[in-house]
């Protein structure tokens, strides 16, 4: 079976701005790939090139084994869902969902349309709202209708451009799970664009990290989180953010600000490095050098502790039962196997 989507060497420039540089990307037939990157990384441009709304300067886009670069957006048979869902406010939910099926050239019978709309509504738990005008829906319901409009066509590929960004945090959290489960049931490939690292880890079968128009890393969420190839990736994936400490080789061990942090390991860079420690991998006891507790924040299920250590500010994520208070002195320690080391030039 050919890949749902294959991109090779995709490059796009807008005037002086190099939006995309040599992007390679594959999407398998039953896969949800999340494209994660900050604002301006090139995510939306890439999506628009795939949808046929933008023509790339160089490179190839293959959809289901067919070269797509010359095809119109309609011929590509992909469904695009945007951050700003535009529904017809006076139409009912059912009419909004049915809209793409009524496009000229589709020639679907009324019964077939009704059946398809009922199916889409069932998938999105909108059955009870089919006769309600779109203007009387909540934000989360509106976004579900917009998604319904995309799935009702049964396209070969879904392209989602930050579909949950404008919703309340609480709603985003439940819809991201709903959407991932729905996609699994539909068995349709999806490319999902977001700047929210939790969404990327949570939803993606694989994650591609994009910044400055280049793919920095792609892989399964666990691989990207546990083995980031560069400090840039490590910073973009994971909240609370990874601690990055400039360290020096002090003969057998890495020190930062004069404090011994971890021993050297095979494959470590020579001389100097940037040492990465995830907040959950920093324990508050067992180390040799003292640190002052500057702040303890209750995050609900865990505590986030901000420390002054080795002349730097670092954060540790610890269990709620930890007896730690502002002003305490602790002796942080990191498990060497759970730290990251990059050559200082990265």
């Amino acid at each position: 079976m050919s890949a749902a989507l294959a991109i090779r060497g995709l490059t796009k420039r807008f005037g002086a701005v190099q939006a995309l540089t040599g992007v390679d990307l594959d999407l398998a037939a039953d896969e949800l790939l999340v494209l994660l990157g900050p604002t301006g990384a090139g995510k939306t441009t890439l999506l628009r090139c795939i949808a046929g709304l933008e023509a790339p300067d160089a490179g190839s886009i293959t959809l289901g084994g067919v070269d797509a670069v010359g095809l119109s957006p309609a011929q590509r048979d992909v469904a695009l869902v945007f951050q700003n869902f535009s529904l017809y406010p006076d139409w009912t939910v059912g009419e909004n969902i049915a809209f793409p099926l009524r496009a000229p050239g589709r020639a679907m019978g009324a019964d077939a349309i009704r059946e398809r709309v009922a199916w889409a509504a069932r998938m999105l738990r909108l059955t009870d709202y089919l006769d309600r005008p779109a203007s009387r829906l909540s934000g989360g319901q509106m976004q579900r209708v917009a998604i319904g409009r995309a799935i009702v066509r049964r396209p070969r590929l879904f392209l989602m451009d930050e579909p949950l960004t404008n919703l309340d945090a609480k709603l985003r959290e439940s819809l991201r799970v709903e959407l991932a489960v729905l996609r699994r049931e539909l068995k349709t490939p999806m490319l999902y664009v977001t700047h929210d690292q939790a969404e990327a880890l949570s939803m993606g079968d694989r994650v591609a990290v994009l910044d400055g128009g280049r793919i920095l890393q792609q892989g399964e969420p666990r691989a990207v989180y546990e083995r980031p190839v560069s400090p840039a990736v490590a910073r973009l994936v994971g909240l609370p953010r990874i601690n990055l400490l400039p360290a020096e080789d002090a003969g057998g061990g890495w020190t930062a600000g004069g404090v011994a942090i971890v021993p050297r390991a095979a494959g470590d860079p020579a001389g100097r490095c940037l040492l990465g420690i995830r907040p959950e991998d920093l324990r508050l006891a067992g180390g040799s050098a003292p640190a002052e507790v500057q702040l303890v924040e209750h995050l609900g299920a865990a505590l986030l502790v901000t420390l002054r250590w080795a002349g730097m500010q670092v954060q540790a994520l610890v269990g709620k039962d930890a007896a730690v208070r502002r002003g305490d002195t602790v002796h942080p320690a990191a498990d060497p196997g759970r730290t990251h080391r990059w050559s200082a030039a990265d």
């Binding site: 991932a180 880890l201 949570s202 994971g238 609370p240 959950e280 299920a301």
Partner: peptide, 9 residues
């Protein structure tokens, strides 16, 4: 239904 990986948990 879903194992939602979030990095630290």
């Amino acid at each position: 239904v879903m194992d939602e990986y979030l990095g630290a948990w």
